[in-house]
Simulated scan of single mutants.
Amino acid sequence: MAPRKQSLAGTAADLNSAAIHLLRGMRAADRASGLTAARLSALSVLVFGGPTTLGRLAAAEDVTPPTMTRIVDGLVALGLAERAEHPDSARSVLVVATDAGTELMQAAAARRVEVIVAALRALPTDERRAVVDAAPALRALADDVPQRARALFRS
């Protein structure tokens, strides 16, 4: 497939559409975890980012602290997370993934990877190579987008 010339806005629109479709495609894999999307996402932050406060978890997930409290309450009730003493502040608590939460999240992440690997294998070789070559740049772009969105759309 020959690359086509397009504007940055056109590329951005294509990437936005691709991201949305990838996330929709992950829903079936994510449903196998048995958690809501909000709980699975918060658990992912805990497992892959480490213990954190409720406030930081709420900020990472872009929800209000009361909403995050409800999400964490659900994870705690399921035995997937626990509250622990904060080592530096008696007024704060840390939210920590339990071993069961870590196992569940790692299995969920593996299912997502399995789906993407299957989709990559189905691509023609030249398209698969282009995706593989672009993956590091796409990762860097994804890491940069949240701060740019916050800077552009401060609320």
Rank of each mutant, 00 (worst) to 15 (best):
V115W: 01
A58R: 02
M105L: 03
L46A: 04
L8K: 05
R70I: 00
G50Y: 09
A42M: 11
L78P: 00
G74D: 03
R111V: 01
V63I: 15
E82M: 10
A60Y: 05
M105A: 12
E114F: 08
A42H: 04
T64R: 13
L120R: 10
M26G: 03
G50H: 11
V113T: 09
L94G: 00
S33C: 06
L22H: 02
D14C: 07
N16C: 10
S7F: 03
R39D: 11
L23N: 11
L80F: 08
V96T: 14
E114C: 09
A29L: 07
A119K: 11
G55L: 09
A107V: 11
E82R: 14
A122F: 02
G50W: 13
L54P: 00
P3C: 03
T102S: 14
E114G: 15
T64V: 08
P65D: 10
F48K: 04
V117Y: 05
A37I: 12
A59F: 04
R39I: 00
S33V: 01
G49S: 09
L46M: 08
G79I: 08
S41Y: 11
A107M: 08
A18N: 04
L22W: 04
T102G: 14
K5T: 13
A28W: 06
T67L: 10
V47G: 03
S44P: 00
G34P: 05
P3N: 03
P124N: 04
T125W: 05
G25L: 05
A84T: 13
A77P: 00
A2V: 10
K5D: 12
L75G: 05
R112W: 03
T67C: 09
L75N: 04
A90P: 11
T69F: 05
D73N: 15
L78W: 00
G34A: 10
V115C: 10
G50I: 13
D88R: 08
A81Y: 02
